[in-house]
Each structure stands twice: as C-alpha cells, then as structure tokens.
C-alpha cells in the first residue's frame, strides 16, 4: 500500500494523539482508583483521592474531545462502534458516572458506610473503565463482523474472547503501574512507602501481561506486524517501547520517580503508536469480510470538514497544552489536605 500523508492520515494521527493524551493522563487516575481499596486508612484514602482531585476531570476531557473529534472526522467509525458496542458503551457510561459521583461525594459525609460505599464504587468503576477500554482495543485488533452498509452484525458476546479479555487485563495492569508511580510522586511518609512497594509489584504484573499479549498478537494476528515488515525502520518504535518499559524499574531503583513516570508515559505512548501503525489505514477491521473494513478514507468526513477541523485544532490545541501544563504546575508537589479537599 502506498502511504500518502493527506488530511485523513493527519486526522488518524490527531485522534491517536488525543487518545494517547487520554491514556497517559486519565491512565494514572484510573490506576489510582484501581489501587484505592488496597489503602485502608481514611486519611490515606483521602490523600489518594486528592492526588487526582484537581486534575481527573480535565483528564477525562481528553476522552470527551477524542469522542467529539471521532464523530467529526470519522463519523462512520463513531456510529458503527458506538451502536455496535451498545451494551459495552452504556456500561462504560454508567461507570464514568459512578466514578465521577464517587470522587465528588465520598468525603462529603463522615459516616463510615457512606465512605466505604463510594470507595468501592470509585475503585470498581476505575478498574472496569480501564478493562472495557482494553477490550475495545482488543476488538479493533481482532476485527469485528461488519456488513456492506458499515453496520455491526455481531452480538455483545462476540466482543468477549480470551484475546480481548487479555488486552483488557493488560490495560488494567498498565494503568495500575502508571497510577502507582504517580501516587509515589504525590504522597509522603507511610503511604509513600506503601506505594513504592506496589510500584514493583505492578511492574511485574504489567510485564507478564505485556509479554503474553505481545506473543498472542504475534501468533494470532500477524496482520498487526505487516507494516513493520514492509518498512523495517518502524521497529525503532518497538525498541523504544521496550526500552521505556525496562527503564521504569531502573528509575525507581535510583529513586527518580519523576523520570519513572515519564518512562511510564512513554511506554503508554509507544504502545499506542505500535497499535496505530498495526491497524493503519483501517480504523475498524471487519472480520470476516475485510473488504467491509472502515478505513481512514471510507469512514471519513469531507476534505472540507477535515480542513476546518484542522484549523480549529491548530487554534485550540496550544491553549489546551498551556492550560494542562499550568494546572499541573500549580498543583505540583505532595498532596496536603485542606478544607476544600475531597
């Protein structure tokens, strides 16, 4: 296939960037959520929550904007996937609601049962969100049954198979590791030591999942490596990915938590880049009947819309980066509980 760097490709990359931003940012706060119940003390749980307090909402905006951009740039993908995965998307929405509400309401009342209830909701929702997103990614790799009119013709259970579940679990493990490292950056004393211990455990858990998923992908879905064979320099990406992952325990060992976090973010970004290269130029692979796949061409909006959106993105994105960086700068350092805290 001839590679042309056109508007459709640019939008494929831009939506990839939005989702990567989402995975890196919401990834750590979902990870904090996944680890939340392992912390038992109430004050420590509040510190966990407040470590993501000022930022989780902004992190979720990356998903919302990614969804909006998908709707605008590739309406057929948006329509096919969201209606085809109806039950899973609705479940995801419920979990996003539960999670938001749990964070917001948990510390508003002092009763033990109240806080325990929201803690459980927060944690389970965080794990399920990560899991469902992983399952969705897995389905993009395996392909889903589509017909000639771009409609999903499978059922809910067609989405669930050992491979997609494996990708789901890998995503949870990745976010747990990422969240644990973020937690180390934001906490002090006893909780800090506890989280440091978990960083090591979560790295091991993630690496096991990662190796298993990679092997399964290479064996069962060789289509994912086609572009790498055609254009070997792309292997640099795979190398970068492995180096980034290997670098995490090294940085932790030397006590450079911030660099460990950067490494963890880099491994998320390179994993998603590998995934994107693997599926390109398809966005949703049709299996069986690959000729019905949704590609960056047959699923896209008009060139005019893609151009307008590019202008919108070019105006908006510098602002988005500026706010994001300022907010993280203003709220840098260890968490201190105040009367405005969760």
């Amino acid at each position: 296939m001839e590679f042309t760097f056109d508007l459709n490709t640019i939008w494929f990359i831009l939506i990839g960037l939005l989702l990567t931003g989402y995975a890196i940012l919401d990834g750590f706060d979902l990870g904090i959520g996944a680890l939340h119940l392992l912390v038992k003390d109430d004050v420590e749980r509040r510190i966990m929550l407040n470590s993501i307090g000022p930022v989780w909402d902004g992190n979720e905006v990356w998903l919302v904007t990614g969804g909006g951009a998908l709707f605008a740039a590739f309406p057929h993908v948006y329509a096919t996937v969201f209606s085809g995965f109806y039950n899973a998307i609705i479940m995801l929405l419920f979990m996003l609601i539960f999670r938001a509400v749990a964070i917001e309401f948990r510390s508003k009342r002092p009763m033990k049962w109240w806080r325990q209830m929201w803690d459980v909701a927060f944690s389970i929702a965080s794990i399920l969100i990560a899991f469902l997103m992983g399952v969705a990614l897995g389905n993009i790799i395996t392909g889903i049954p589509l017909d000639a009119t771009k409609e999903y013709v499978g059922t809910f259970w067609d989405m669930i198979n050992p491979y997609t579940v494996l990708v789901g679990i890998t995503t949870v493990s990745l976010f747990m590791m990422h969240g644990a490292i973020y937690g180390v950056l934001k906490t002090e004393d006893q909780l800090n030591r506890k989280l440091k211990g978990w960083v090591n455990n979560t790295i091991i858990f993630f690496v096991i999942c990662y190796v298993t998923t990679t092997m399964a992908t290479l064996i069962y879905f060789p289509n994912m490596v086609k572009h790498f064979k055609d254009f070997p320099p792309l292997f640099a990406l795979a190398l970068l990915n492995m180096l980034a992952i290997a670098n995490i325990p090294r940085e932790i060992h030397h006590g450079r938590e911030f660099m460990a976090f950067v490494s963890s973010a880099a491994s998320i970004a390179s994993l998603l880049a590998l995934f994107a290269v693997g599926i390109f130029p398809n966005i949703v692979l049709s299996n069986p009947n690959p000729e019905f796949s949704l590609t960056i061409y047959n699923a896209a909006s008009s060139q005019k819309t893609l151009t307008i959106m590019l202008i919108i993105a070019a105006i908006g994105f510098p602002f988005v980066l500026a706010y994001t960086i300022s907010i993280y700068w203003i709220f840098r350092g260890k968490v201190k509980l105040t009367n405005m805290s969760y």
């Binding site: 709707f71 605008a72 057929h76």
Partner: peptide, 22 residues
C-alpha cells in the same frame, strides 16, 4: 450520526477543544 457527522461533529469537537478544556 452518519448523516450529520460532517456538519454536526465539528461543532461538538469545537465544544471539546474550546470549552471543556478551558
């Protein structure tokens, strides 16, 4: 969504990038 995405989607995406992040 398939019918209006080209038109309606841009407004929604603009909302995300200009309003929600802010």
């Amino acid at each position: 969504s398939r019918f209006v995405g080209d038109v309606f989607g841009s407004a929604l995406a603009a909302e995300g990038i200009f309003a929600f992040f802010l």
